[in-house]
Design a protein around this nucleic acid. Structure first.
Lengths: 332, 332
DNA sequence: AATAAAATTGGCAGCGCTGCCAAAATTGAA
DNA sequence: TTCAATTTTGGCAGCGCTGCCAATTTTATT
């Protein structure tokens, strides 16, 4: 399909109408180079009169700068990614950059295809979730020469820029907290971490700490798909059916944890005495539940903001650790 | 800032390397027009060898078709909009369209600025939330000639395409349901509906039905900012402090309603006997709470999908009502 | 084998804008 | 008033691709 005729006022027509040259109009509109006040006013009047909207496609082609930032994210259902987009989008919009996005559904193959599709727009930067990508993705990205920002994970090697926090450290902190609280029969309820590799990193680090303390994970229940409140509720139900003696559960994230929390409320399981619950993300909602959720708050919006700012500043390759905050809450 | 040198393999270089003409490469890559198998293979080999990534900026300029769809949405914090993006994005990506977005923060002035910025990319379509826009927005959109899709509301005049459901009808259905359930002292807890005009439409329709039944709204509490679980909890707390005799609350959406629900759980208010709760949106989470929330489920993902499909099909101007579903739940 | 019809192919002029450079206008200094 | 320095301005060649058209090659027909 091809849409109707677009508004076809061109810069040349504006120049004509204003009685000046094309490059003069271009200079005035971009406020770049010098021009007299009189000329400025005449040009702006013509722009106004004709309803001229600059064509950034032509502009980008001529200047080899698109002012487009591409986001290739795993999901839009998990609020984490909208949060990052929000942070980055705010900074970018304030600087006349636009955001393009594509969703991979946690599929590395789709990620590669989407990255290639995005690169066709010659973006100033590509932002990706995490550090794990297919070889093809890494290759095409490196070959392209545009900035690459990997978000929300620091445990591994970055291509160019990386902004986030350590998921391993988060997993460890969670385990240490729970041990220190005295829980001893700890289970895990999570979602598919072959796809969500960051959740996998937290899980493994968590287990390692438990083992080192001589209290290895007592059991786990993994949901095959993406995380959701429902999966969390179901997962906890199943796990408790098998292992009713558990005294605490580590969830792959707050969505899952909220599901577990609801399960306990529904079954009259007393939290945290009968069963403790610990999540990850620090969703806003999780602090408003009758008992605030014990979790780790991640600076998702800030990750987006910092990532965008680094790109705007054309900062050298580096890794920025924004850390996380352990929220004690009342569920563990 | 200007980023590093971009990968600079051009179509002309591929043509050279493959020993064919430029237009032949173009035809092969777009699978458009005719060419022999032998030529196809030679071109693809050269593309592979050189790591060529087509430049869609140049392509769009030459063909006057960007295959870009612009989304100008009020917020990314409210899951409603990511849901719509997800629905539309899926359909668009499958057809080699890309999505660009900008966030207005419910500010009509920003909406106008963002729409203008988006139009500079000559998108195939612009998708907006709701039917209320500044005069400037409507004018620039109409003048531009690209497709315009207004989403999530049907109560008013559309510019071109509109996909959604009637918020007025949703408000009425909610009121009728609550009256039929026997609630008589009904209150409202909502958020700023000067900005979220769709919430305002639901509210007014809701009140109208109550009045017609001789049971006008007993009281309301409006949060000045955006909706959130916390605002809902606080709003209910305040409203009950003033009007403890209320027997049911209509919330502006499920986020707010969940906040109210949590408040009741925390205070031991028995739902729905002591107080009934009714929301709007049908969030996934709302069906997993100990008592499933009584609410109206809106087809947000489908709205995105249908909107995208209409644009792909270059469908004539029309309004499509996707309806909504009243979920009885257990909280009202 | 000759000719017509169909399938391939390449050349090249733009798409609308920016960047470069030289020309013109203005200002300042002597 | 004259000449140099400075500020404004316009012309025009691309940016990398697509669309049109004509040229060439292949295939079908008689």
């Amino acid at each position: 399909m091809t849409s109707k005729l677009q508004s076809t006022v061109t810069l040349a027509e504006v120049a004509e109408a204003a009685g000046v040259g094309e490059s003069t109009v271009s200079r005035v509109l971009r406020n770049h180079g010098s021009f007299s006040k009189k000329t400025h006013d005449r040009v702006m009047a013509a722009v106004e009169r004709l309803g001229y909207v600059p064509n950034r496609i032509a502009g980008a082609l001529a200047s080899a700068g698109s002012r487009l930032v591409a986001f290739v994210i795993p999901s839009l259902s998990n609020i984490v990614f909208p949060d990052v987009l929000r942070g980055a989008g705010g900074v970018l919009e304030a600087n006349q950059y636009q955001s393009v996005f594509a969703v991979t559904d946690y599929d590395p193959g789709r990620e590669e295809a989407m990255v290639a599709a995005m690169l066709a727009w010659r973006p100033s930067a590509v932002m990706l979730a995490g550090l794990e990508h297919s070889e093809g993705t890494a290759k095409i990205l490196r070959a392209n020469g545009c900035r690459v920002v990997e978000l929300l994970d620091l445990d591994g090697a970055a291509i160019d820029l990386a902004v986030g926090f350590s998921n391993g450290a988060a997993g460890r902190a969670s385990a240490e907290f729970m041990l220190q609280r005295g829980y001893r029969r700890i289970g895990y309820v999570g979602h598919d971490f072959h796809r969500d590799t960051r959740a996998g990193k937290r899980f493994r680090a968590f287990c390692t700490v438990l083992e080192a303390a001589g209290r290895p994970l007592a059991g786990h229940e993994i949901h095959a798909g993406a995380s959701s409140v429902e999966a969390g509720r179901l997962g906890l139900e199943r796990l408790l059916a098998r292992l009713p003696e558990l005294d605490a559960i580590y969830f792959s994230n707050d969505d899952m944890a909220l599901g577990g929390y609801f399960h306990c409320l529904a079954r009259g399981i007393s939290i945290p005495y009968q069963l403790a619950i610990f999540g990850y993300n620090g969703l806003d909602m999780a602090k408003v539940t009758p008992q605030p959720l014990s979790t780790i708050r991640t600076p998702r919006v800030a990750v987006g903001q910092v990532a965008a700012q680094l790109v705007l500043d054309d900062a050298p390759s580096q890794t920025i650790d924004l850390g996380f905050e352990l929220i004690e809450g009342e569920t563990a």
